[in-house]
Amino acid sequence: MKNGLDFLNLLNCDVSLKILTNLEDPSDLVRFSAVSRSWRQFVIENGLLKHLCRRMFPQLSRVDHVNELCGTAKGHAEAGSSNFMEWEALKREHRVYAFFARGCLSFAPRECIYEAIIASSTDNDPEEGIHNTLEPRDRVARRASYWSSKGQSNPAVPETLTYRLCADLCVITEINVRPFQAYFQIGKPIYSANSVRFRMGHVKSCMDNIVKESCQDCGNEKFAWTYTSQEFPMAQENCLQNFRLPEPVLCIGGILQIELLGRVQRQEMDSFTIYVCLMFKLWGGHYLLHLVFSHLNTLKNLCWRH
């Protein structure tokens, strides 16, 4: 550079793209684009930030286009030209994905469950309802606090627990689940599942609006899932079990579902039925809505393909 030479001008476009697409941190691309006007133009014209964000979070492949409600295109004589409008659109995408990437990488891990929505079954509601899964203690006011499924004679019958997250965009890295140990029963049995699987998605009928009302009456058919994890084996232990996802997952729509697969423990007084009882905690999530969209106003600025 001290000799006035720019390596982007010395290499062909394909080689430059090959070099820059090996960057794994969006901040590196932002810093690269701040070096000179020509480098910034190269990053923006080739949509490098968008491609990197999509590589980090494949769920973003459903983004059709982006808008900035608080921003307006500025131009003079070229304001109506197609070249100008295309360049403005590319710059807008660059800004949006830069803010999005900053949101993904700048939060410390935290809990991000907002509320429990619905369980596929509950043995004694509300005493053994899904809301108890969000209570870290196994006793509250001298009473046991846990969720229990209905009993089933077939151990293969699954159960699901559905939750709303703190924002419509959350990055989830790990989920912790604790099977409940019935300390009040003979032998103190642990009611666990054989394995667990996680789904993330959104409410089908509310895709164009941020969901504010309760979904207590929503059945499983009311949700669309954009991510389904692998199955994780559960230990038959009364401890908070950590299930770390292979890669951070962007939950679009703020709905998380836990699938409990396979039943293990029969109840002493009812040997023909098998139950699952849980306490639950979600950890390691980043909720992005308040940071990213303090600049972009609403979730509508990312327009999803249905």
Rank of each mutant, 00 (worst) to 15 (best):
V292G: 06
Q230C: 15
T298Q: 08
S120H: 11
N132V: 08
K2H: 15
H295D: 12
C206W: 04
I130L: 14
N12V: 06
I113V: 13
R143F: 11
P126W: 10
R40W: 02
H65Y: 11
F243S: 03
W147A: 10
I44F: 10
M269Y: 15
T21V: 06
N46A: 09
C277M: 14
M56C: 11
D6T: 02
A144C: 14
Q152N: 08
Q216F: 13
R164F: 01
L20A: 07
S205M: 01
R305D: 11
G103W: 03
G262T: 07
S33F: 06
E111P: 04
Y97N: 02
R54W: 03
V30C: 06
V157C: 05
G129H: 06
S148C: 15
W283K: 12
V63Q: 02
F99A: 10
T133Y: 02
V30P: 00
L299R: 13
P246R: 11
E237W: 14
C170W: 09
S145R: 08
V140F: 06
R139D: 01
M1N: 03
K204H: 09
S214I: 00
C53T: 00
K2A: 15
V63R: 00
N132Y: 11
L299C: 12
F232K: 10
S121G: 01
A79K: 09
I44K: 04
A77R: 13
I113W: 02
T72E: 01
C70Q: 09
C112E: 09
E128K: 15
V276H: 08
P126K: 13
V63D: 00
T273Q: 10
L296P: 02
R263V: 09
F180G: 04
F184V: 09
Q230L: 15
C104Y: 02
Q41T: 12
K2G: 12
W304Y: 13
P248G: 07
L289V: 13
V264E: 10
I210S: 04
G285Q: 03
L29W: 04
P136A: 00
Y97V: 06
L169T: 07
H65L: 09
R142F: 15
L105W: 05
C303D: 02
P136E: 01
I252H: 05
A119F: 07
E24P: 00
C218I: 07
L5S: 05
A98I: 09
L29S: 08
R142I: 11
T21H: 04
F42D: 01
L260Y: 12
T21L: 03
Y146S: 12
A77C: 12
F232D: 04
F7I: 13
E237N: 14
I118Y: 05
V43I: 09
H51T: 06
Q267D: 15
C53H: 02
